[in-house]
């Protein structure tokens, strides 16, 4: 123990783990923690970056008050929530039974099918938005052509008429993340599979009754996890509406999410203070909704246990 070489080794071993984790924490400090602190401070000031650091003026909570009373912000919040529900809920309503079906009915074609559903998730949102922009085109788009072929009204201005633009964008989001949710549910189903086999030996239990009474309750923790991920993701929705609908277009406000609103405040209007305030308000809303979501699931669980 007392030879110098030994002592040196012990020391090295004590310091080593800190050196190994240092890169993460240094980066996290510089590009994570510090910017966040700075953003709080910024949200309490009025400032345009062009004017330099000295032009920063303390305004207290004015930025927050301004944002909270701004009708455009209200509109963006409404759009965000609308997208969260309309593109989020169907993802799970489709992914759950589909994952169950794939898991229990598909054997050889399984990887192919899962792969097909998953590809949109790993594709660039820009490439996706560009192809959908052509497919949605009013006079020449494939979607309208298809509708006409089916003798349905096929002259819809999908990305130009406010009442269609929102659902059109929501569909792209749904399309992109469906496979992700299927994969999440499949990974959970692999764990509960044994129970399923036992349950399936009971007579008179149909395929979908099994799903409803056995699989679904067992999947609850994963449903909670997946819904939470969708909620958090959709509340920060930015890329799909941002690329699909040009900001100059008349319908742009109807797909302006809060994240887009924040981006425009900062990078088009140069109002970094208010934009920072908006980002914190949005953060609090996401935190609150995530909390409510977890309470709802917990309540349902307690209810189940007491039954």
């Amino acid at each position: 123990m007392n030879t110098p070489a030994r002592r040196r080794k012990w020391k090295q071993r004590d310091i080593a783990p800190y050196l190994f984790i240092a890169p993460f924490f240094v980066l996290f400090l510089v590009f994570g923690v510090f910017p966040l602190g700075f953003s709080v401070w910024l949200s309490l000031h009025q400032w345009e970056p062009a004017a330099g650091m000295s032009a920063m003026r303390w305004v207290g909570l004015d930025n927050y008050m301004f944002a909270l009373t701004d009708p455009w912000f209200h509109r963006s919040l409404w759009n965000t929530l609308w997208f969260a529900v309309v593109s989020g809920l169907p993802q799970h309503l489709v992914a759950l039974p589909l994952a169950y079906f794939i898991q229990s009915r598909l054997k050889r074609s399984r990887n192919l099918v899962v792969g097909a559903y998953f590809i949109p998730y790993i594709t660039s949102s820009v490439a996706i938005a560009l192809i959908f922009a052509t497919l949605y085109s009013k006079d020449y788009g494939v979607i309208n052509a298809l509708l006409q072929a089916l003798h349905l009204p096929g002259d819809i201005d999908w990305l130009g008429d406010a009442s269609y633009t929102k659902p059109a964008v929501a569909f792209v989001v749904f399309w992109r993340y469906l496979g992700w949710n299927i994969v999440l549910y499949l990974s959970a189903l692999q764990i509960v599979d044994n129970d399923l086999y036992e349950a399936a030996t009971l007579d008179d239990v149909s395929f979908w009754q099994q799903f409803w009474h056995i699989t679904l309750p067992l999947l609850r923790p994963m449903i909670f996890f997946a819904v939470t991920l969708t909620l958090i993701g959709n509340l920060q929705l930015f890329e799909e509406p941002f690329i699909l609908v040009d900001a100059e277009k008349g319908v742009a406000p109807s797909v302006m999410t809060s994240a887009i609103f924040m981006y425009r405040l900062a990078f088009s209007d140069g109002d970094f203070g208010t934009a920072s305030a908006v980002s914190w308000i949005l953060f609090l809303i996401i935190a609150a909704l995530t909390w409510v979501n977890s309470r709802l699931f917990k309540r349902a669980e307690d209810h189940d246990v007491s039954r």
Partner: peptide
């Protein structure tokens, strides 16, 4: 802390990290 950092929404960092880059 490592796990918690995964929970932070990306947009929160958009503006301040732009300023850090600047």
């Amino acid at each position: 802390l490592v796990l918690a950092s995964m929970m932070l929404p990306a947009f929160l960092n958009m503006i301040p990290s732009f300023m850090v880059m600047q």
